[in-house]
């Protein structure tokens, strides 16, 4: 885990009692979150735990059913444009305009964000070189691989040098080099005094880059703290984050049973 450098006392992301319902389905329940400047907060949870809903609600894409939130001092319901201008967002599945090339797309994003051309070009050049985009910068996004699309979305999330990064499984589909670059960029963001909310279901990622982790399960944050604090909550002083996570979500016994069942089923069959 990294040690963040806090430069201010007011949280950049603050939610209180944030709840989101889809009909009768409660996707998010009573989310209380405070992410300080210089902090990388990991939202850790299994598929369908409510990570994406939490991030989309914080970004203002979804209206909360109840509760309130403040992003860099602004409320998304009242100052949506200000909130969005402070955030760099990468979705789990990079949805961008498929018929545009990365150049066209970044040009569009930079224009909408009213960015200075020279500064933007310098930022794009650094990031595009880092992500090896030379062969793909003028190809339609539709023709790019999932990883390449993710890189385009990542560049777009950094070009305005945002105060807050909201990354929803942003490392999905990235190769090892790019994955490392993103981790570095996230770390630089924290060192500059920005905040990062990083959702993932990969324990190793959360363990390595996050200062603090919130374990989300069935729409609720069931535990929060540093890895050591989480270990303490499960009554042990060691163990990987995966083990801690399974204990916290009470899935340890279930995983062991499933593993036993699969072992029996697979080992009984010979490989053809």
């Amino acid at each position: 885990m990294q040690s963040g450098v806090s430069v201010a006392t007011e949280p950049l992301i603050e939610t209180f009692g944030l709840t989101k319902k889809f009909g009768s389905v409660r996707a998010l329940t009573d989310l209380n979150l405070r992410v300080m400047p210089g902090e990388i907060y990991g939202l850790l949870g299994p598929n369908g735990a409510g990570k994406t809903t939490a991030i989309k609600t914080i970004l203002g894409l979804l209206e909360p059913t109840s509760g309130w939130l403040k992003i860099a001092g602004f409320s998304p319901t009242k100052n949506l444009i200000e909130v969005k201008s402070k955030i760099g967002y990468v979705a789990e599945n990079p949805i961008v305009y498929d018929s545009l090339s990365p150049r066209d797309f970044l040009e569009f994003v930079a224009s909408i964000r009213k960015l200075n051309q020279a500064k933007t070009n310098a930022t794009i050049a650094h990031l595009a070189n880092a992500f090896d985009m030379t062969q793909y910068f003028d190809s339609p996004i539709a023709t790019l691989s999932h990883g390449m699309k993710q890189k385009v979305a990542l560049i777009a999330s950094f070009i305005h040098q945002p105060t807050i990064l909201l990354f929803d499984e942003a490392l999905n589909g990235l190769d090892a080099k790019s994955s490392r670059i993103v981790k570095d960029l996230v770390s630089f963001q924290a060192q500059k005094g920005g905040a990062v909310l990083f959702s993932t279901h990969i324990m190793e990622v959360a363990e390595k880059i996050c200062n603090r982790i919130g374990v989300i399960h069935q729409g609720k944050v069931i535990a929060e703290g540093t890895l050591e604090q989480l270990r303490g909550k499960t009554g042990g002083n060691d163990g990987t984050l995966e083990e801690v996570f399974l204990k916290l979500t009470h899935e340890e016994a279930e995983v062991a049973d499933t593993s036993k069942m699969l072992r029996e089923a697979f080992l009984e069959n010979e490989i053809v």
């Binding site: 040009e107 224009s111 009213k114 910068f137």
Partner: peptide
Amino acid sequence: RVTAKDFSVKTHRPLLGYILK
């Protein structure tokens, strides 16, 4: 694939940027 010679973009005012998009 066509190799890009540079990574420069041309920014516009938001309205024009949206129209061009």
